[in-house]
Design a protein around this nucleic acid. Structure first.
Length: 271
DNA sequence: ATGGGCACCTGGCTGC
DNA sequence: TGCAGCCAGGTGCCCA
């Protein structure tokens, strides 16, 4: 479910409830996530104070005094803050119970999410070490995108979804950013001109920033940390709009499968 | 090094 | 009503 804007929306939603609190208990109701939750994690994190809540790509980092929890929401995960006494629902797999009487509850039907506890520098962890620059920071610019697309035969949509090259762009925003940049998703990455790279970088930044401002995209059951749905969905130009008229030129939006994922584009506006 | 495909899961929807 | 088949927001890993 979550792309970068949903993860950032979640981070901002939980931060005020979590930062500065002390962990009373980590309750692992279902350890079988994408990777098994380590059995000794509850004993390691109990009693520690939360010093910060950060995000790297689509990972959330909950910094503690002596280490960090590294959480990924996968395809269907969500985090909610609620009273620790609230009855659990199906797929509520984790509870980070706090000294405020509240709990940070992780629900994930598909169990593609994950939780690690790191005592080393998180940036050096295997899952984070090879990630590309953050798209909303300065290192991600037209020069960078132009450089990494040279010699790449792969379709530009697949390239911008490759977290070793660009982080935070998932299936929805990949289609949306390419529409805004006027670039067809199937184009070989190396065929992009410098001007197109400039447009694409701007489009990626703009679409992610706007989605964060609107609190993420509502698709099916997505809700933010406070349980409220995101409002970006009505802003989508192409995603899940196959056959419908392009909002800009009225040409029917096309749908096709790329790398086993759905892609949407306007054959008129995108070249 | 690059690229393509699969795997991990559950649930919702469609069509017979 | 039941059930098979297909699809869904991610990404690490294996193989060619």
């Amino acid at each position: 479910m979550p792309e970068l804007p949903e993860v950032e929306t979640t981070r901002r939603g939980i931060e005020p409830h979590v930062q500065g609190r002390r962990v009373v208990q980590l309750a692992v109701h279902e350890p079988r996530l994408r990777w098994p939750v380590a059995a000794d994690m509850p004993s390691l994190v109990a009693g520690q104070q939360v010093t910060a809540v950060r995000r790297r790509a689509k990972y959330l980092l909950i910094d503690l005094e002596r280490g960090s929890l590294l959480l990924h929401l996968g395809m269907s995960g969500s985090l909610r803050v609620m009273s620790a006494t609230t009855p659990r629902l199906t797929h509520d797999h984790l509870d980070l119970e706090l000294d405020s009487g509240q709990t940070l509850r992780f629900n994930d039907p598909r169990r593609f999410g994950s939780l690690h506890y790191l005592t080393e520098d998180p940036a050096q962890h295997l899952l984070l070490r090879k990630l590309a620059p953050e798209p909303l920071e300065d290192a991600f610019d037209a020069d960078y995108l132009y450089r990494v697309t040279r010699k790449r035969q792969v379709a530009i949509k697949l390239l911008i979804m490759n977290s070793h090259l660009v982080v935070g762009v998932g299936n929805i925003y990949a289609s949306e950013a390419l529409f805004r940049a006027g670039i067809r998703p199937g184009r070989a990455a190396k065929s992009l001109t410098r001007a197109e790279c400039t447009r694409l970088v701007k489009a990626i930044r703009a679409v992610l920033a706007m989605a964060i401002r609107f609190g993420g995209t509502t698709l099916r059951d997505y809700v933010g940390a406070d349980g409220k749905p995101g409002y970006f969905r009505r802003k989508l130009y192409v995603y899940e709009r196959g056959g419908e008229p392009c909002r800009r030129c009225a040409t029917p939006i096309r749908h096709r499968v790329q790398g086993q994922r759905s892609t949407y584009f306007c054959p008129q506006c995108q070249r």
